[in-house]
Protein backbone atom coordinates (compact mmCIF):
# COMPACT_ATOMS: atom_id res chain seq x y z
CA UNK A 1 0.00 0.00 0.00
CA UNK A 2 2.91 2.31 0.85
CA UNK A 3 6.18 1.25 -0.66
CA UNK A 4 9.49 3.10 -0.58
CA UNK A 5 11.99 1.59 -2.98
CA UNK A 6 15.64 2.67 -2.69
CA UNK A 7 14.65 6.22 -1.93
CA UNK A 8 17.21 9.02 -1.78
CA UNK A 9 16.41 12.61 -0.97
CA UNK A 10 18.96 15.36 -1.30
CA UNK A 11 18.45 19.06 -0.54
CA UNK A 12 20.66 21.64 -2.25
CA UNK A 13 21.71 23.29 1.03
CA UNK A 14 21.55 20.62 3.70
CA UNK A 15 22.68 17.66 1.59
CA UNK A 16 21.48 14.05 1.75
CA UNK A 17 18.40 13.65 3.98
CA UNK A 18 17.53 10.06 3.01
CA UNK A 19 19.86 7.30 1.85
CA UNK A 20 18.58 4.20 0.16
CA UNK A 21 15.42 3.91 2.23
CA UNK A 22 13.15 0.97 1.47
CA UNK A 23 10.16 -0.39 3.37
CA UNK A 24 6.65 -1.59 2.72
CA UNK A 25 3.67 -0.63 4.90
CA UNK A 26 0.78 -2.99 4.34
CA UNK A 27 -2.93 -2.31 4.43
CA UNK A 28 -4.20 -1.87 8.00
CA UNK A 29 -0.69 -2.02 9.47
CA UNK A 30 0.52 0.18 12.38
CA UNK A 31 4.14 1.28 12.37
CA UNK A 32 6.27 3.65 14.42
CA UNK A 33 8.93 5.68 12.66
CA UNK A 34 11.60 6.52 15.23
CA UNK A 35 14.99 8.15 15.30
CA UNK A 36 16.69 11.30 16.53
CA UNK A 37 15.84 14.76 15.19
CA UNK A 38 17.13 15.19 11.65
CA UNK A 39 17.13 11.44 11.00
CA UNK A 40 14.67 11.85 8.12
CA UNK A 41 11.28 10.92 9.68
CA UNK A 42 9.44 14.03 8.52
CA UNK A 43 11.08 13.81 5.08
CA UNK A 44 9.63 10.31 4.66
CA UNK A 45 6.13 11.52 5.61
CA UNK A 46 6.43 14.45 3.18
CA UNK A 47 7.48 12.10 0.38
CA UNK A 48 4.51 9.84 1.08
CA UNK A 49 2.18 12.86 1.08
CA UNK A 50 3.83 13.92 -2.21
CA UNK A 51 4.76 17.32 -0.83
CA UNK A 52 8.06 16.69 -2.52
CA UNK A 53 9.59 14.05 -4.78
CA UNK A 54 12.50 11.74 -4.09
CA UNK A 55 15.84 12.60 -5.71
CA UNK A 56 16.19 8.95 -6.63
CA UNK A 57 14.14 5.81 -6.09
CA UNK A 58 10.38 5.48 -6.00
CA UNK A 59 7.55 6.12 -3.55
CA UNK A 60 4.32 4.23 -4.19
CA UNK A 61 1.17 5.17 -2.32
CA UNK A 62 -2.15 3.44 -2.85
CA UNK A 63 -1.72 2.99 -6.60
CA UNK A 64 0.14 6.27 -7.20
CA UNK A 65 3.85 6.38 -7.99
CA UNK A 66 6.19 9.32 -7.41
CA UNK A 67 7.72 8.54 -10.81
CA UNK A 68 4.50 9.13 -12.71
CA UNK A 69 2.76 11.57 -10.39
CA UNK A 70 1.08 14.53 -12.05
CA UNK A 71 0.35 17.70 -10.11
CA UNK A 72 -3.38 17.40 -10.75
CA UNK A 73 -3.41 13.89 -9.18
CA UNK A 74 -1.93 15.05 -5.86
CA UNK A 75 -5.24 16.26 -4.34
CA UNK A 76 -6.82 12.87 -5.04
CA UNK A 77 -3.90 11.11 -3.36
CA UNK A 78 -4.14 13.39 -0.31
CA UNK A 79 -7.76 12.47 0.19
CA UNK A 80 -6.60 8.87 0.63
CA UNK A 81 -3.75 9.80 2.96
CA UNK A 82 -4.69 11.74 6.11
CA UNK A 83 -2.02 13.68 7.94
CA UNK A 84 -1.62 15.22 11.40
CA UNK A 85 1.21 17.34 12.81
CA UNK A 86 2.72 18.21 16.15
CA UNK A 87 1.43 21.79 15.68
CA UNK A 88 -2.17 20.67 14.81
CA UNK A 89 -2.51 23.20 11.94
CA UNK A 90 -6.07 24.23 12.76
CA UNK A 91 -7.52 27.51 11.49
CA UNK A 92 -7.70 29.78 14.52
CA UNK A 93 -10.56 31.91 13.22
CA UNK A 94 -12.92 28.93 12.84
CA UNK A 95 -14.59 26.74 15.41
CA UNK A 96 -13.85 23.02 15.75
CA UNK A 97 -16.91 22.17 13.63
CA UNK A 98 -16.04 24.85 11.05
CA UNK A 99 -12.49 23.50 10.75
CA UNK A 100 -13.93 20.11 9.81
CA UNK A 101 -16.61 21.59 7.55
CA UNK A 102 -13.94 23.66 5.79
CA UNK A 103 -12.00 20.51 4.87
CA UNK A 104 -15.16 19.09 3.29
CA UNK A 105 -16.19 22.31 1.55
CA UNK A 106 -12.83 22.84 -0.13
CA UNK A 107 -12.83 19.31 -1.47
CA UNK A 108 -16.24 19.70 -3.06
CA UNK A 109 -18.39 18.13 -0.30
CA UNK A 110 -22.14 18.60 -0.65
CA UNK A 111 -23.56 21.11 1.79
CA UNK A 112 -26.40 18.78 2.71
CA UNK A 113 -23.93 16.10 3.82
CA UNK A 114 -21.35 18.27 5.53
CA UNK A 115 -23.21 18.91 8.79
CA UNK A 116 -23.97 15.24 9.43
CA UNK A 117 -20.45 14.13 8.66
CA UNK A 118 -18.93 16.81 10.89
CA UNK A 119 -21.16 15.74 13.80
CA UNK A 120 -20.26 12.07 13.32
CA UNK A 121 -16.54 12.85 13.28
CA UNK A 122 -16.75 15.10 16.32
CA UNK A 123 -18.56 12.29 18.18
CA UNK A 124 -15.93 9.79 16.97
CA UNK A 125 -13.09 11.83 18.52
CA UNK A 126 -15.17 12.52 21.66
CA UNK A 127 -15.59 16.24 21.11
CA UNK A 128 -19.25 16.66 20.09
CA UNK A 129 -19.93 19.04 23.02
CA UNK A 130 -16.98 21.25 21.97
CA UNK A 131 -18.16 21.76 18.38
CA UNK A 132 -18.53 25.54 18.77
CA UNK A 133 -15.18 26.12 20.50
CA UNK A 134 -12.33 27.91 18.75
CA UNK A 135 -8.88 26.23 18.75
CA UNK A 136 -7.57 28.67 21.35
CA UNK A 137 -10.38 27.60 23.68
CA UNK A 138 -9.40 23.92 23.37
CA UNK A 139 -6.61 22.06 25.17
CA UNK A 140 -3.68 20.66 23.15
CA UNK A 141 -5.15 17.18 23.32
CA UNK A 142 -8.54 18.43 22.12
CA UNK A 143 -6.92 20.34 19.25
CA UNK A 144 -5.08 17.21 18.15
CA UNK A 145 -8.37 15.29 18.26
CA UNK A 146 -9.90 17.85 15.90
CA UNK A 147 -6.85 17.55 13.65
CA UNK A 148 -7.29 13.75 13.68
CA UNK A 149 -10.98 14.11 12.83
CA UNK A 150 -10.01 16.37 9.92
CA UNK A 151 -7.44 13.84 8.71
CA UNK A 152 -10.17 11.18 8.66
CA UNK A 153 -12.67 13.31 6.78
CA UNK A 154 -12.22 11.44 3.47
CA UNK A 155 -11.95 7.97 5.08
CA UNK A 156 -8.26 7.62 4.18
CA UNK A 157 -6.51 4.28 3.74
CA UNK A 158 -3.54 5.51 5.70
CA UNK A 159 -2.94 8.07 8.43
CA UNK A 160 0.44 9.78 8.65
CA UNK A 161 1.18 11.29 12.06
CA UNK A 162 4.21 13.52 12.52
CA UNK A 163 4.98 13.66 16.25
CA UNK A 164 1.26 13.89 17.10
CA UNK A 165 1.96 13.80 20.84
CA UNK A 166 5.03 16.04 20.76
CA UNK A 167 3.20 19.02 22.27
CA UNK A 168 1.02 17.09 24.69
CA UNK A 169 1.29 16.00 28.33
CA UNK A 170 1.35 12.34 29.32
CA UNK A 171 -2.41 11.98 29.76
CA UNK A 172 -3.33 13.76 26.53
CA UNK A 173 -0.67 11.77 24.66
CA UNK A 174 -2.18 8.53 25.86
CA UNK A 175 -5.63 9.68 24.77
CA UNK A 176 -4.39 10.61 21.29
CA UNK A 177 -2.52 7.35 20.95
CA UNK A 178 -5.59 5.34 21.95
CA UNK A 179 -7.56 7.25 19.33
CA UNK A 180 -5.04 6.38 16.61
CA UNK A 181 -5.24 2.73 17.72
CA UNK A 182 -9.03 2.90 17.32
CA UNK A 183 -8.59 4.40 13.88
CA UNK A 184 -6.15 1.62 13.01
CA UNK A 185 -8.42 -1.12 14.29
CA UNK A 186 -11.14 0.23 12.00
CA UNK A 187 -8.84 -0.64 9.06
CA UNK A 188 -6.77 2.51 8.44
CA UNK A 189 -3.02 1.96 8.31
CA UNK A 190 -1.01 4.27 10.56
CA UNK A 191 2.57 5.47 10.17
CA UNK A 192 3.52 7.49 13.24
CA UNK A 193 6.78 9.42 13.52
CA UNK A 194 7.63 9.85 17.19
CA UNK A 195 10.34 10.63 19.74
CA UNK A 196 8.31 9.03 22.48
CA UNK A 197 10.21 5.78 23.07
CA UNK A 198 8.16 4.95 26.19
CA UNK A 199 5.12 4.76 23.94
CA UNK A 200 6.94 2.54 21.46
CA UNK A 201 8.12 0.17 24.21
CA UNK A 202 4.63 -0.04 25.70
CA UNK A 203 3.25 -1.50 22.45
CA UNK A 204 5.75 -4.11 21.28
CA UNK A 205 3.13 -5.63 18.99
CA UNK A 206 3.52 -2.73 16.55
CA UNK A 207 6.17 -2.51 13.92
CA UNK A 208 9.14 -0.16 14.48
CA UNK A 209 11.20 1.40 11.70
CA UNK A 210 14.26 3.19 13.05
CA UNK A 211 16.15 5.84 11.12
CA UNK A 212 19.59 7.31 11.73
CA UNK A 213 21.27 9.85 9.47
CA UNK A 214 18.68 9.33 6.76
CA UNK A 215 18.98 5.56 6.58
CA UNK A 216 16.83 2.72 7.96
CA UNK A 217 18.94 1.06 10.67
CA UNK A 218 16.27 -1.20 12.08
CA UNK A 219 12.94 -2.55 10.91
CA UNK A 220 11.16 -4.93 13.25
CA UNK A 221 9.29 -6.39 10.28
CA UNK A 222 12.53 -7.59 8.73
CA UNK A 223 16.15 -7.90 9.57
CA UNK A 224 18.11 -5.16 11.28
CA UNK A 225 20.15 -3.40 8.65
CA UNK A 226 23.37 -1.55 8.61
CA UNK A 227 23.23 2.17 8.01
CA UNK A 228 22.45 2.87 4.33
CA UNK A 229 24.75 4.26 1.68
CA UNK A 230 25.40 1.03 -0.13
CA UNK A 231 22.66 0.31 -2.64
Amino acid sequence: MIKLINVYKEYPRSGLALKNVSFHLRKGEFAFLIGPSGAGKTTILRLIHMVESPTDGEVRVSGYSSMRMKRRDIPRLRRRVGMVFQTFRLLRDRTAAENLAFALEVTGGRRSEIKGKVQRLLAHVGLAPRAGAYPDELSGGEQQRIALARALIHDPVVLLADEPTGNLDERASRGIFELTRDINSAGTAVLMATHNLDLVRRYPQYRVIELADGAVVYDSAGEARESGGES
Binding site: P75, M83, R89, L90, V106, T107, I153
Partner: peptide, 17 residues
Amino acid sequence: REEIVVMQLVGATDGFV
Protein backbone atom coordinates in the same frame (compact mmCIF):
# COMPACT_ATOMS: atom_id res chain seq x y z
CA ARG B 1 -1.36 31.32 4.06
CA GLU B 2 -2.38 28.86 6.78
CA GLU B 3 -5.76 28.49 5.11
CA ILE B 4 -4.08 27.67 1.80
CA VAL B 5 -1.85 25.13 3.55
CA VAL B 6 -4.87 23.41 5.13
CA MET B 7 -6.66 23.34 1.79
CA GLN B 8 -3.69 21.62 0.17
CA LEU B 9 -3.31 19.31 3.13
CA VAL B 10 -6.86 17.95 2.92
CA GLY B 11 -6.72 17.50 -0.85
CA ALA B 12 -8.35 20.59 -2.35
CA THR B 13 -7.54 20.98 -6.04
CA ASP B 14 -5.40 23.92 -7.16
CA GLY B 15 -8.44 25.43 -8.87
CA PHE B 16 -10.46 25.27 -5.68
CA VAL B 17 -7.67 26.90 -3.69
